[in-house]
């Protein structure tokens, strides 16, 4: 009896333990978690708290950001990532780069997501500026800065400066210098953006990021195609097309390409090609 009793008790308690654990874990998920606050401890405090382990603390904060971002892909609601969550995402990447300003991955993730989806281009550029200052051997960060200035902020002169800086660094792609001069030609925005994206894509080997940039590139190529068609239409009929269907009706193009983001292309009031998905 004395030998059996503990075994019986253990066998009895193990399933109870498992079921209670799942109950508690479920309840824990429902606890208020400070939703709506994007607060991350100030970086200097984090640096002090991480003692001599700031390198690993930087890796940890970065992985935390990455895990959070990955988890948002399971969400059904739109927008997938809320405003305050973008802020938090930026803050934690900023903290990670404060702990180890030489760490490339946070900059890389910020460039891939904060700009296109998060609408935080100025903040991303501030982050990249820091990275570019510390990683003075790396041409990729000033190249990203150049792209953001050119494509999102529409500051071509500034973009040229960044690209020149990038082209001077070791192993820089030879295309950068010529791209920098090309930016002087106004009105070739989409074409230059395609060149930019192809360059970013060639330096990307992480599968998910690659896919993201590929989709983006395809969308931009479709827009470029439509823009060129609209110019051809203008030349042939001496007036701009009012809607995209005009071009298929007059056989300028055979069909309107599909937006890889699931939206529909249209011609905006100023004559530029836009899409309802806004490339997100």
């Amino acid at each position: 009896m004395q030998r059996v009793l503990p075994i019986v008790l253990i066998l009895l308690l193990l399933p109870i333990h498992a079921s209670i654990l799942s109950k508690v874990a479920e309840g824990n998920k429902l606890l208020p978690k400070g939703e709506g606050t994007s607060y991350v401890l100030p970086s200097p405090i984090l640096k002090i708290m991480s003692l001599e382990f700031d390198g690993i603390a930087s890796d940890y904060t970065f992985l935390k950001a990455l895990v959070f971002f990955g988890s948002t892909f399971e969400r059904k609601e739109r927008p997938r990532v809320k405003e305050w969550e973008w802020r938090w995402f930026y803050n934690i990447l900023n903290a990670s780069t404060h702990l180890d300003p030489y760490f490339l991955d946070p900059y890389y993730v910020a460039q891939a997501h904060l700009t296109w989806e998060g609408n935080m281009v100025r903040e991303t550029n501030a982050l990249l500026e820091k990275g570019s200052r510390y990683r003075d051997w790396d041409w990729v960060l000033p190249f990203y800065l150049g792209f953001n200035s050119f494509y999102f902020l529409l500051e071509d002169a500034k973009a040229s400066e960044y690209l020149m800086e990038a082209s001077k660094r070791p192993d820089a792609s030879p295309i950068l210098a010529s791209l920098a001069t090309r930016l002087a030609y106004k009105g070739k925005k989409t074409e230059n953006a395609v060149i930019f994206l192809q360059e970013i894509l060639s330096g990307t080997d992480d599968e998910n990021t690659k896919k993201m940039y590929e989709t983006r590139l395809n969308a931009l190529k479709a827009i470029l195609f439509l823009e060129r068609a609209a110019t051809a239409y203008q030349e042939r009929f001496k007036r701009p097309p009012e809607k995209l269907e005009d071009m298929t009706a007059k056989n300028v193009i055979r069909e309107i390409p599909k937006d890889p983001y699931g939206g529909k292309f249209y011609i905006d009031k100023d004559g530029s090609i836009k899409t309802t998905s806004e490339l997100r």
């Binding site: 001599e52 390198g55 890796d59 990455l66 992480d206």
Partner: peptide
Amino acid sequence: SMIMQEVGKVAVDMALS
């Protein structure tokens, strides 16, 4: 295996820490 770019940096960080 979870790091995208600077795997070497993280590996050295882990080992030294």
